[in-house]
Design a protein around this nucleic acid. Structure first.
Lengths: 153, 153
DNA sequence: TATTGTTATACTCTATAACTATA
DNA sequence: TATAGTTATAGAGTATAACAATA
């Protein structure tokens, strides 16, 4: 059987691999989020507020941290606050700003959702050789935490 | 110095790592694509048409292959055809369908763009230990090629 | 009647600009 | 005057529905 000519480039572009995978992963999370009555951006907010020990001091900082526009998260914060999942109070030291913090029930929800999401991920990752799995996750964290400018030169 | 309590989950969610990385990679490609006067979806079309040896037999099949809606790629195909980068002709065996194929100049453009994109990627990947780099790319291809359903159970 | 491609339309998501309240 | 947050608006991107040509 003839093989045809080999491709000029031995591998696909990184973006062509990663972007579709990201879409698939988001779609796979959707049913879990829905069961818990929380949207993707709201979950991202809970994750961001529950990662450090100190509360976030401005909404703009939170928006940037999760890669969203500051105007985009307002309705998300309204909803989370109304449901008692976050606290949002004027900063005594600068009353223009709103200090944000997760509440105990917000933390509980985040934990329940994340446990399900990661359990689902683990079932898929289980197909990988243990060594590849570890190297993949480690490398992925490194690449994600690189500055955007590092990719542009 | 106190360490604070460790996070309940030892790693971030896969989607929370991969989606932002995808956004960064797409942004990093943008200047290259712009220099060559081609948009992201158009580049995706050229990649898809240049990966196999046989032409693609319907536009719907192409759309699905690149994760787009069939109505979304029409203007993209119009433009590529007008610029002589693809051929689009009625299928003699079913004149409802349009057979798509890349042209020599389309292939040339795809190669020029891809060479620059991957060279840029390589400079970033060069920071990684060679062994991690190989494991990462290999694993990434495996995960990207998994069926969406495999992520949902 | 069903399917391919196309066009027109509606909807969602996101960003921009204008406004308020504090500083 | 400048900044954090908010609201209103506009724009891009995407999907849905209706249509023409062919099977």
């Amino acid at each position: 059987m003839p093989l045809g000519k080999p491709p000029a480039h031995p591998r696909r572009d990184l973006a062509a691999l990663i972007v579709p995978l990201g879409r698939t992963l988001m779609a796979a999370e959707q049913p879990i989020l829905q069961r818990h009555g929380i949207a993707m951006w709201a979950y991202a907010v809970l994750l961001a507020l529950d990662s450090g020990d100190e509360p976030v001091r401005t909404q703009a900082a939170l928006a940037q941290a999760i890669g969203a526009d500051k105007t985009r998260i307002i309705s998300v914060l309204d909803d989370l606050q109304e449901r008692g999942l976050i606290r949002r109070e004027p900063d005594p030291e600068d009353r223009r700003a709103r200090v944000l913090a997760i509440t105990p029930s917000g933390r509980k929800l985040r934990h329940a959702v994340q446990t399900e999401i990661q359990a689902q991920e683990e079932r898929a990752l289980a197909r990988l050789p243990a060594h590849d799995r570890a190297a993949f996750l480690r490398t992925l964290e490194t690449l994600t935490d690189m500055e955007p400018a590092e990719w542009q030169r």
